[in-house]
């Protein structure tokens, strides 16, 4: 597994991470570490996880997303999960998975809208 497969992109005061289509456990763990370090470094207000390429979401991945959301929240940030594929949404629901306190949007554009709207009202 390539340890440098994930990039965390800083967009103004939020972070964008695009998750690869079939992420291994180590990639998912790496995601959590990279995101938390980047939030501290850039003082980000939020995280967008673009999972539009992801074609499998199992209980390990769901738990890590849920935990990461919780950790980001403890650091004062909001997590938005963007772009879940229909087949993944069906399977995740049947499997009984939940993503904790993360908000979901249809795509990254709508995720960005959430942050833009939120910051206007603050």
């Amino acid at each position: 597994m390539d340890g440098n497969s994930l990039s965390v992109i800083k967009l103004k005061n939020i972070l964008l991470v695009t998750v690869p289509d079939d992420p291994g456990d180590d990639t998912i763990q790496e995601l959590q570490n990279k995101v938390l370090n980047a939030i501290e470094k850039y003082e980000s207000k939020g995280l967008i996880l673009d999972i539009s390429n992801v074609n499998i979401l199992d209980s390990f991945f769901a738990r890590t997303i849920s935990e990461t959301t919780q950790m980001v929240a403890l650091m004062g940030g909001q997590t938005v999960i963007a772009g879940m594929q229909p087949a993944v949404a069906i399977t995740a629901t049947e499997l009984g998975l939940h993503l904790g306190k993360a908000i979901s949007t249809l795509d990254v554009d709508k995720a960005l809208d959430i942050f833009t709207d939120n910051f206007k009202t603050v």
Binding site: I56, S59, A92, L95
Partner: peptide
Amino acid sequence: VTRIVTAVSE
């Protein structure tokens, strides 16, 4: 396919 692959993963 997604159901089957997810079951495999678990």
